[in-house]
């Protein structure tokens, strides 16, 4: 085996779902939430794990923490079989769920951290150093005495991330850490995660619906849909594989016939505004230069491809191949 910190080999998770079929009859149906996934994450890597809702992301994370037992396949985190040795593994991993909090609602942040310190038996000096670092970088100084229920979503999220890192985990799982956050909070969280990854060499597995998270943080991305790994590689190549497109929205000074440019096509015209579509892999700069040279341009903006579309297109393609 390679020296991967996270290793999955043909991992499956099958749920039995009972459904009403008639007045009293119940139908049993099997749902393959995770359907034979294999990947390896080496130490120190930051990987994006993306896919539409219900794709199997959270199920994978739950298996990686040991909360759920795989129905088949082999799974190791830091050499530990998670579901067999959940407690031992727990001391070596950190988990942040964007939609749930690991903090205690009624307690001030500081008291929550004290409970975490006892739970993970963190040595006093490590605890002080780690807390200080998190407080500094996540801007928590003024929040330590505030009960968690009074924190805003962004503050709570930062508090949660700190709680997950106090015990020096080797692996950090982040399940939609920027969900519902405003732009400033998102930027703060991303900056912190980047520093944790680059400076401490922490291995990070990140699930998200926000493509910007991935673009700014991850060199590698894995796409899962219907419980299967659809893609595993760099982000730029993902766009190429998914044939994803960016859109250049241009406002001209006056109404023009649809413009024709090499490497782009006009998708829509609405008065002086036109939508030009071009491959996500190529740069917008030559297009913009060309446009400005030919026509009087008032304003421009570039729309990034939506990750769901990229994945949807990829999925449609792969099922066509299979």
């Amino acid at each position: 085996m390679s020296d991967g910190l996270i290793e999955l080999d043909g991992v499956e998770k099958v749920f039995d779902v009972r459904r009403r079929a008639g007045l009293l009859r119940r139908e049993r149906r099997q749902v393959r939430a995770v359907d034979g996934i294999s990947f390896t994450v080496p130490r120190g890597e930051m990987v994006g794990y993306i896919g539409p809702n219900g794709a199997g992301k959270s199920t994978t994370i739950k298996m990686l923490t040991g909360i759920l037992t795989p129905s088949g396949g082999r799974l190791r985190v830091a050499g530990i079989d998670p579901s067999r040795e959940r407690t031992r593994l727990a001391r070596r991993i950190g988990v942040v769920f964007g939609q749930r909090t690991t903090l205690w609602w009624d307690l001030p942040l500081r008291d929550s951290y004290q409970l975490v310190r006892r739970m993970y038996r963190i040595p006093d000096d490590r605890y002080r150093v780690n807390l200080e670092r998190c407080v500094e970088l996540l801007d928590l100084r003024d929040l330590l005495e505030v009960p968690v229920r009074q924190l805003s979503l962004g503050q709570r999220m930062r508090g949660d991330i700190a709680a997950a890192l106090l015990h020096d985990p080797e692996v950090l799982y982040l399940d939609e850490p920027t969900i519902g956050l405003d732009v400033v909070s998102k930027a703060k969280v991303r900056e912190f995660l980047r520093s944790v990854n680059t400076e401490q060499g922490m291995t990070v597995l990140l699930t998200t619906h926000d493509l910007t998270d991935i673009e700014q943080l991850c060199s590698r991305v894995m796409v899962i849909d219907h419980g299967r790994l659809m893609y595993d590689g760099g982000l730029a190549e993902l766009h190429a594989v998914g044939e994803s497109e960016r859109t250049l929205v241009v406002d001209f000074e006056r109404e023009l016939p649809p413009v024709e440019l090499p490497g782009a096509r006009c998708e829509r015209v609405d008065g002086p505004r036109q939508w030009l579509v071009f491959p996500a892999g190529s740069s917008a700069a030559p297009l913009v230069a060309e446009l400005a040279a030919r026509h009087p341009v008032v304003d421009l903006s570039v729309r990034e491809p939506v990750i769901e579309d990229v994945i949807a297109r990829m999925y449609a393609e792969s099922s066509a191949v299979v």
Partner: peptide, 12 residues
């Protein structure tokens, strides 16, 4: 709500 997932992965 499923929050028990958090309680379960803790070393407690």
């Amino acid at each position: 709500s499923g929050d028990v997932a958090i309680d379960l992965y803790r070393p407690a």
